[in-house]
Write a protein that binds this DNA or RNA. Structure first.
Lengths: 196, 196
DNA sequence: CCTACCGATCGGTAGG
DNA sequence: CCTACCGATCGGTAGG
C-alpha cells in the first residue's frame, strides 16, 4: 500500500527539490525532514526507506513522460513523421517545464535505484526512446528525413531535450512555449531532408 | 604543490571510473582506496581531501576541452562558420571519447566542488560555450545559418554533445569517428539555412 | 603506506 | 510525529 496523503506528497516535493539541487546521494534523510520541519526519524512514519522516496519521484515522472507522449500521438492520429516528431518533442518539453525538479531527478538520479526498480526504469526509458526512434525510421524511409542512423539521431535529440531539465528556470529568459518553438525548429532541421 | 607521481595519477584514474559509474557523493574515500589495494587512510599520503581528487579530475578535463577547441580553431584559421562549427564539434567529441570517464565527471559532478573552484569551473564552462555561441552568431549574421537564438542553439548542441560522455562505450557499436560523423551532420543540419 | 583512532553523520528501528 | 537509540560508515588525523 502506497501512502498518498498530503504529507506524503509534500515529502516528494521537497525531496525532488533537494535531489535536483544536490543529487540523491548528497541529500540525507534529515535534510528532507528539516525542510518539512520535522525530525529525521519522523519521516519513517510515511516512507519505508530513502530509496522509496526516489522511486516514487522517478516512477511518477516516468509516467508523466509516457502519458504526455501517448497523448501527443493520440491527438495527431494521421500525422506524417515530421508532424509526429514535432508533437513528441513538444510533449517532452511540456512535461519537463511543467516539473523540472521531478524531470531532472528522473533523468539524472534513476541510477541510484537498485534491483528490479532500476531494471524497470531502464526498460521504460528504452520504450520511450523507441517512439522517437521509430518515428525517425519512418521519416527516413518515406524520404521526409535525410539518411541517418535513427538510433544515433534519437539519442542526439533526447539528450538535448533532457538537458532542458538541468538548466530550465521558471523565471528565465524564455517561456516554455518559446523554448519548445526553438527546440522543435532545431530538431526538425537536424533531421529533415530538405527544409522549405 | 600538486603531487604528480604515478600513484597520484592512478588515484585520479580509479576515482574517475568510480565517480563516473556511481557519482562523487556515492563514492567513498575507502572505495577509491580499495580499488588501489591500499587502506583508506593511506590515500591521504597523496591527497589532502576527497574534493581535491574531484578537482584534479575536473580541472584536467576542463583543460583538455579548452586545449582541443583551441587547437581546432588554430588549425582552421580561415574557416567559415560552418567549417568552424564542424571543427569545434569534432574536437569536442574527440575529447569525450578519448576519456569518457574524465569527461562525464567534468560534465555531471562539477557541482560538488565548493567555493572558488566551483565558480572558476562555471566561468570556464561559460567561456567554452561562448566559442560555440559566437560561431553560431557569426553564421547567422552572414546567412550561413538560419535565424535563431544563438544561446539556445549552443545549449541545444552542447547538451547533446555532452550526453555522449554518459552513453559512450569504447566497445560499442560505433567508433568515435563514426559518432563524430553523425553528430556533425546532425549539428550542421540543425543550424544551416539551406543545405546542399 | 600502515595501524589505530577521532567526532560526525548516515539510514533506520523501538516504543510511545 | 517525538525521543532515544542502533550499528555502520563517513572524511580525515596522529604517529609511526
Amino acid at each position: 500500500m502506497i501512502e498518498t496523503g498530503a504529507r506524503r506528497r509534500a515529502i516528494d516535493e521537497v525531496a525532488s527539490e533537494l535531489f535536483h539541487a544536490n543529487g540523491y546521494a548528497a541529500t540525507s534523510v534529515r535534510d528532507i525532514a528539516r525542510a518539512l520541519d520535522i525530525q529525521g526519524a519522523s519521516l519513517y512514519a510515511h516512507v519505508a526507506s530513502k530509496e522509496d522516496v526516489l522511486w516514487s519521484i522517478v516512477d511518477r515522472a516516468a509516467t508523466a513522460f509516457e502519458a504526455s507522449a501517448e497523448r501527443a500521438i493520440i491527438e495527431t492520429p494521421d500525422a506524417d513523421p515530421t508532424e509526429r516528431l514535432a508533437a513528441l518533442v513538444e510533449a517532452h518539453i511540456e512535461t519537463i517545464t511543467a516539473n523540472p525538479q521531478h524531470s531532472s531527478v528522473f533523468v539524472t538520479e534513476w541510477r541510484h535505484l537498485s534491483g528490479a526498480r532500476r531494471t524497470t526504469i531502464a526498460a521504460r526509458r528504452d520504450a520511450y526512446e523507441a517512439r522517437f526512434r521509430s518515428t525517425i525510421e519512418t521519416g527516413v524511409s518515406v524520404g521526409a528525413f535525410h539518411a541517418m542512423d535513427p538510433a544515433i539521431a534519437s539519442t542526439f535529440l533526447l539528450t538535448a531535450l533532457n538537458g532542458i531539465s538541468t538548466w530550465y528556470r521558471p523565471d528565465g529568459r524564455l517561456s516554455p512555449d518559446r523554448i519548445a518553438d526553438h527546440y522543435i525548429e532545431l530538431a526538425l532541421h537536424s533531421l529533415s531532408e530538405d527544409h522549405r
